[in-house]
């Protein structure tokens, strides 16, 4: 208390010898927006996250040029990981042209000068909101998911201290009870997206909200998945080749989304995640637009 923190508009890399010089120096053009110290700090948190799969690592989330709740966490993860040789793909709802995807992508490319792409096999960093691309990904990919609510247990507990205790003790019985109650009341488990998963048989994580369709892709994946929650100031990770089990009872199969007989009106696919236009016949289309385009062209 009584100590006033001041951020001075100057950089550390020059060696000023007077206060005027110290204050006078200002650089706003840094590679990938954030100063190096901040990026290192985020990478340290990410390393910890990779070492403890599924554990929510607190980090000093910075204020970004995009609002909190709009992918500021994913953006920080991307910017902390990006190097000059990377190529970035950004999607929102599976679409490279979604407005927020466009905005985030131009921020990344503008501040780094790296290549952008819509093709999974050309990308090294894939930042996404609400989807995993349909294409196969491998060890060369890092998938960065934007997370609005990183706490999978919030629906059953609000108190931060109690939540910390539950994770520490892997005391997840109330989560199981909520699934039991759901099944009893509704006949099915009604959790739609963000399905809770147990990672490496230890921590339950919130799966951003990606649809259940994408959940099996996380299990023993070849690629690294990083989760960034900027507003709630947490990162967590699913390293490659890690077990990811959706929470469900042995005798209640985990169900992904389905639409009877639906196919994409553009590419004819029936084995991708489809979204619909309300009230129309033949209204389905692939949520992953780049994938859909390639299906049509091959």
């Amino acid at each position: 208390m009584g100590r006033t923190e001041m951020t001075l508009e100057a950089t550390v890399n020059s060696s000023p010898t007077t206060i005027a010089e110290l204050v006078g120096h200002r650089t706003t053009e840094t590679f990938a927006l954030l100063d190096e110290e901040s990026k290192r700090e985020i990478r340290r948190a990410l390393l910890q996250a990779v070492c403890i799969p599924g554990y929510q690592v607190p980090f000093g989330s910075r204020e970004m040029p995009v609002a909190r709740g709009w992918g500021s966490g994913g953006l920080q993860v991307t910017l902390a990981c990006v190097g000059a040789d990377d190529a970035v793909k950004v999607i929102d709802q599976g679409d490279d042209e979604g407005v927020n995807a466009v905005n985030l992508r131009r921020l990344v490319t503008m501040s780094t000068g790296i290549d952008e792409t819509t093709e999974v096999d050309e990308a090294t960093l894939i930042q996404s909101r609400h989807r995993i691309p349909e294409d196969d990904m491998n060890e060369n990919h890092i998938l960065i998911l934007q997370v609005p609510v990183p706490e999978p247990l919030r629906g059953i507990e609000r108190d931060i201290r109690e939540l910390a205790r539950m994770h520490a003790e892997a005391d997840y019985s109330r989560m199981w009870v909520s699934l039991y109650e759901d099944k009893v009341r509704n006949g099915v488990i009604t959790q739609s997206t963000g399905y809770p998963c147990l990672v490496a048989s230890r921590y339950i994580v919130a799966t951003t909200p990606i649809p259940r369709w994408d959940i099996p892709r996380l299990h023993q994946s070849k690629f690294l998945t990083l989760f960034g929650a900027g507003r709630e100031k947490r990162v967590y990770a699913i390293p490659p080749y890690t077990d990811v089990e959706p929470l469900t009872f042995e005798d209640v199969p985990f169900e992904v989304e389905s639409a009877d007989g639906a196919t994409c009106r553009l590419c004819g696919s029936s084995d991708s995640f489809l979204v619909e236009m309300p009230g129309k016949q033949e209204s389905w289309s692939c949520s992953d637009t780049a994938w859909c385009r390639r299906q049509r062209n091959t």
């Binding site: 909190r68 500021s72 609400h130 609005p148 739609s192 909200p209 649809p211 989304e257």
Partner: peptide, 22 residues
């Protein structure tokens, strides 16, 4: 708070599709 509130304006059609399916 404001950022999260306003994020509701973002596209949510993938999550909404999943909810409709349930």
């Amino acid at each position: 708070s404001a950022g999260f509130l306003e994020h509701l304006k973002l596209p949510h059609y993938v999550t909404f599709r999943s909810m409709v399916e349930r």
